[in-house]
Amino acid sequence: MKKLLLPVFGLLCVAYYGCDKDDTTTKPTACVNVDVVDSVKLIPVISTYITAQLDSLADQSQRADDSVYLYSKSDSIAKIVINNAVAVNDLTLFRSLGDLEAVYNQPIYFTYCGSASNYKSIYTGDAGHIYADTLNQPNAGTGVSFQGSIYPYAYGLPDTFRVAVVATNVSDIGSQVLQSVDEKSFILK
């Protein structure tokens, strides 16, 4: 009898304490900024890089040849600088757009500025990526899950776009799912 009572008591304890787990989570706060590269901040970075490369050369003729080459590659250098800034979440090269601000068609960088969340999805507002808070809403699309705080995106055509970020927290066992949505609009000319 003692041999049977101990395992049964152990199972009851495991079941009681396992099911009595506090399964709560906090509601996230979603926030998104629509950013573009600020050329006023980007040009000095590129210029400093090119100057440093040329200053390292002692031969004047090589310096003249390399200066033409490096300045012809400034667009490639700019892409590398921007990609590095995105990779390390450095926001110093970007400027945020105001609601419904118009900019010329260029890559857009969505910056997540909300609280930490388990899952983040972005709806870019173009065809197939339109946020809808109900399932039966026409033109609803899918969001893109992303990590980090900067999500780069290039639009195909100029238009007015409404971007939405959905931040979701799920409790450990899944009994609680809380989400928050932030939306911004902008115009690409």
Rank of each mutant, 00 (worst) to 15 (best):
T124H: 02
V144Q: 10
C31M: 02
L42I: 09
A85W: 02
D59H: 04
F146E: 05
I108R: 02
V34L: 08
Y17G: 06
V14K: 05
Y109M: 07
G114D: 06
A30F: 03
G174Q: 07
N89L: 05
Y69Q: 10
G156Y: 06
V86W: 07
L157F: 12
A64P: 01
A15I: 14
L5C: 11
P138K: 10
Q53S: 11
G128R: 01
Y131P: 01
H129R: 00
V40A: 14
D75V: 08
D55P: 04
S56I: 02
L11Y: 03
N84S: 13
G141Y: 12
L100Y: 12
Y17F: 14
V14P: 00
P107D: 03
A85L: 01
V181F: 05
N33S: 14
I50G: 04
Y49I: 01
S72L: 10
G98A: 12
D59C: 05
T25Q: 08
G141S: 08
D133C: 05
V37K: 07
V177D: 01
P107E: 09
I46E: 03
S39K: 15
V181K: 04
G128L: 03
C31G: 10
V37R: 06
F9L: 15
C13E: 04
K73W: 00
I50Y: 06
A52R: 13
L91Q: 12
S175N: 14
I77C: 11
D75M: 09
V144H: 03
A127I: 11
I108W: 00
S56G: 03
V34K: 10
Q106L: 07
I187L: 09
K21E: 07
V36E: 05
Y123S: 00
F94E: 05
V14Q: 05
V45P: 03
I46G: 00
A164P: 00
P152L: 07
T48I: 05
V8H: 04
A102W: 00
C13F: 15
D38W: 02
A164K: 06
F161P: 02
R95Q: 10
S67C: 02
A127P: 01
R95K: 15
I187K: 15
S67L: 00
Y71G: 01
C31I: 03
K184V: 08
S180D: 14
E183S: 13
N136F: 14
V34P: 04
A127R: 11
G128A: 06
I80N: 15
V81T: 15
I122P: 02
T25G: 03
